[in-house]
Amino acid sequence: MNKKKLIFITGAVAVGVVVQLLISSGVINPYFAQILTLMSMYAILATSLNLINGITGQFSLGHAGFMALGGYFSAILTTKLALPLPNFLMFPLSLLFGGLVAAAAGFLVGLPTLRLRGDYLAIATLGLGEIIRVMFVNWKYVGAAAGMKGIPGYTNFLWTYVIAVFSILIIVNFIKSSHGRACISIREDEIAAETMGINTTKYKVMAFVIGAFFAGVAGGIFGHLIRLLHPNSFTFMVSVEILLMVVLGGLGSITGSIAAAVFLTGLTEALRQFSDLRMIIYSLMLIVIMLFRPQGLLGTREFSLDMFSKFTKKAEKAER
């Protein structure tokens, strides 16, 4: 890992610590703290789905299902099996467990379904998400249709933020490796990728499993934030909402996904004041944005400081 990255991580984590201190001391009120936490959580969800949809080009609509698996199974660990562990160990352990369950499910369902292409895969993953949801509706141990109550509120901003930073870092590093390039080549041209010696099934499943893992982790964060898990919190509209972040940010652009996650979470909250009209405005904005920027806000480009320098250089040239 190079120096620049280490500095970046340290800086990013430092920002998180400062914000958490502001929250703890009451400068940032609990309402805003929750919004910031949700933004971080959606950043994890959007980047992980981007790995599947944007980077590998596999159209998945089942992210909410993996989120549900992670949420429920991590909550089982903290709520049902009260292991004698301190909270700061229990929580990450439960998130890891939730993520691994989701990843395992991703592997099991990915292997047969990832042979499907395009819309067929979309509809199959949508179906899988719904099947997972219906399973929880019928599972009495976790409260069935009434939902799972009494989950400890372990989630706070700092946890979520730090996990988000590391999740995104892992995904970005993966994309930059040769394995990530293999995934990108599948998006570009699956047949050509295969004839370049790339085991396309393996890499499709790999992207799917990594994506599912982080969706599971985010699900765990969600459960321990809301402290109640209900099957209806994981309908396919949630998958669509996450996909919307990916599309809005630009398929394949990680920074775009993060920006869109922050923007849409903020927008949802900002629209709350319109109560009844909230969803009408939201849906109209969605249509208008898609009509005017179908390639997303950033396209496939990454947002970086280089962009600014290019911009200023152009401006300088223009001045001369």
Partner: peptide
């Protein structure tokens, strides 16, 4: 990148190594 993808089959480092950037 087009050419680098074709070298993928000879890459020895694993996924974890790629993520940790050793």
């Amino acid at each position: 990148d087009n050419v680098k993808i074709a070298y993928h089959q000879n890459v020895k480092y694993g996924v974890a190594t790629g993520i940790l950037q050793t």
